[in-house]
């Protein structure tokens, strides 16, 4: 088979390759980096996986904001470990994405220029300590619901990355809930802090699961490739049904007057989501979009001389080694 045939999707040969490819996915086989794949599959995966990696990295900022002010040594250690895990997830996911033929630097470039997106939830500010609890409980909780199905996704490196990521996220979620529980069972001031955080993070967490099915442009193709196994609306319902009893258990109130158990559906009915707010944040006009990008771009630019030095030093070391051999 000539390269031309592989590149040109119009040829019969490539149609047959595509057919075989889809059949492999249907049989639940994993696609590996060196396997043939349609260009669209590669691009879609680069988009989703890099977006996921960026979310981990930008997600370090709102929580990193509280490391120096954590209320106890135990909480400080746990928060440091959590943010470090997120950096690890980012590293892992960038590496997995690199197997599709894009470099980490290119992905950073896309993030810094706004071409690539990251989860809109990280554009909200963390204003009190309780936000560390709310993020762990709600944001990581929603992330898990999104990510557990990805452990079986068709692209091997992504699926394997997700298995590890999900284990750690689940720990973070329990840790966040434990922070909230402690506050909810604490002094009236602490309970108020917890309720306030729930009030502010609830709706953005629901939005985090993506636009409604009617507006989601990627769903159908992603379902076929097992990049998605349930629709956004189904995932959102699952998240709500799972989270409401957890709030009840610690005596916090979900900030939705329309929230009501529906006996027939065996699910909660809930109020309207403010999608205008969602799109405003996605388009770059949320409360913290500019600050988050400023922090990321700033770290990158300020670190340039460090990265240059590391490269120069590695080159010198290599030269010396070669001279020694000669």
């Amino acid at each position: 088979m000539s390269e031309e045939q592989i590149k040109n999707p119009g040829t019969e040969r490539s149609r047959s390759l595509e057919k075989q490819f889809e059949a492999r996915i249907a049989r639940d086989e994993k696609i590996e980096p060196k396997d043939w794949m349609p260009e669209k599959y590669r691009k879609t995966h680069i988009r989703q996986m890099s977006q996921h990696a960026h979310s981990e990295i930008v997600g370090m900022l709102p929580e990193g904001n509280w490391i120096t002010r954590a209320p106890s040594l135990r909480r400080k250690v746990a928060l440091l470990a959590k943010v470090q895990d997120e950096a690890g997830h980012g590293l892992y996911l960038y590496s997995a994405t690199e197997t599709l033929g894009i470099s980490r630097d290119e992905m950073y470039e896309q993030l810094h220029t706004g071409k690539a997106k990251y989860s809109s939830i990280f554009n909200y500010p963390t204003v009190t300590w309780a936000d560390m609890g709310a993020i762990g409980w709600l944001v990581d909780g929603a992330a898990i619901i999104n990510q557990v199905p990805l452990c079986n996704t068709s692209y091997g490196p992504y699926a394997r990355a997700m298995i590890r990521v999900c284990k750690e996220e689940s720990f973070h979620q329990r840790q966040g809930y434990e922070i909230m529980m402690k506050l909810a069972n604490g002094t009236p001031e602490q309970k108020e802090m917890a309720q306030d955080a729930l009030n502010r993070w609830w709706w953005p967490s629901l939005m985090m699961l993506g636009p409604t099915d009617a507006e989601s442009i990627h769903t159908e193709q992603s379902m076929k490739w097992k990049l998605k196994r349930k629709s956004n609306d189904d995932l959102r319902q699952q998240f709500i049904d799972q989270t409401v009893p957890q709030a009840d258990l610690i005596g916090l109130t979900i900030p939705d007057p329309d929230l009501k158990w529906n006996e027939e559906r065996q699910s909660y009915d809930f109020g309207d989501i403010d999608w205008d707010e969602f799109w405003q944040v996605v388009k770059g006009h949320g409360p913290m979009n500019k600050e988050r990008m400023k922090a990321r771009v700033g770290a990158w630019e300020e670190g340039e001389w460090v990265r240059d030095a590391a490269m120069a030093y590695a080159d010198k070391k290599q030269e010396r080694k070669e001279k020694q051999v000669v």
Binding site: I57, M60, K76, L80, A87, A295, G298, A299, G303, V306
Partner: peptide, 18 residues
Amino acid sequence: GELTGHGPTLETDIACTN
């Protein structure tokens, strides 16, 4: 701890946090 999320590379960020 002040530096977490602001390192020159992801690897140094992880190391300093660690």
